[in-house]
């Protein structure tokens, strides 16, 4: 197994971990978004609350979610270590900084990552933590099922302007992070070919705009239209 340890401690191996965990998180975002769009249903939160109950109790989902926490941490910690290593490898910075033909996002992935991490702490502390580890949420009963009313907490949180603002900043950071990260993940895996790379790049840009935008609709909608 030493060969595997050696692989993952090489520069390329570390970047492949970043790429694979990143792609997993990209997939997760889609699932998360589809679930959350139920918040836009006009049913007093019934569909969303039943869905969240399912998500925290289903054993298979529980299993996958531990993988998710692990991959988020791995992506974040390794990403920061790589950024620090790279900054040391560069050493002295140039007096004149000029780099046309490169995107701002590609050079600021760690900064964007830190913003996203800060947003995640706020986001998970407010909803996920309260849902899983506390009894702070009220209970609601639908037909014969009594579940935690996470919808209620979401609706209250999104009345606060600063929470909505923090969400928008976090999602903007996510958008820039994906703008570079999506296509970069494929390049790192060695997938670069004139047959499909233009499509990957196009899809990545589309994803980076559409997904964060769709997430952003939810707090904005609640803030303005669900008084």
């Amino acid at each position: 197994m030493s060969w595997l340890v050696q692989f993952f401690s090489s520069g390329i191996g570390k970047k492949i971990i970043m790429s694979l965990t990143g792609l997993f998180l990209i997939l997760f975002l889609v699932v998360h978004l589809i679930g959350n769009l139920q918040l836009l249903k006009d049913d007093g939160g019934k569909a969303f609350n039943l869905y969240t109950e399912f998500m925290v109790t289903n054993p298979l989902i529980k299993f996958v979610s531990y993988g998710l926490y692990f991959f988020i941490l791995l992506h974040a910690v390794l990403g920061l270590l790589i950024a620090r290593f790279n900054s040391n490898s560069k050493g002295t910075k140039y007096a004149v900084q000029r780099s046309p033909e490169t995107t701002w996002a590609s050079k600021n992935m760690a900064l964007l990552g830190i913003l996203i991490l800060a947003f995640l702490l706020l986001h998970m502390g407010d909803f996920w933590f309260k849902m899983k580890f506390t009894d702070q949420l009220d209970m609601v009963t639908y037909d014969d099922q009594t579940v935690k009313n996470l919808y209620g907490r979401v609706a209250v949180a999104y009345q606060e302007w600063w929470i909505v603002a923090a969400y928008l900043i976090g999602l903007l950071a996510l958008s820039f992070h994906l703008w570079h990260g999506f296509q970069s993940a494929f390049q790192t895996l060695g997938l670069n070919h004139k047959k499909y790379t233009p499509a990957i790049k196009g899809l990545g840009k589309l994803y980076a705009v559409v997904v964060p935008l769709a997430f952003a609709i939810i707090p904005v909608y609640y803030y303005f239209f669900m008084k």
């Binding site: 090489s10 390329i12 970047k15 290593f85 790279n86 033909e101 590609s106 970069s184």
Partner: peptide, 17 residues
């Protein structure tokens, strides 16, 4: 690749500079 790492070169983040 091993030698490149040993020399202390950074890791590629596909910036394209």
């Amino acid at each position: 690749v091993a030698q490149m790492d040993k020399e202390g070169f950074g890791m590629c983040s596909n910036i394209g500079a």
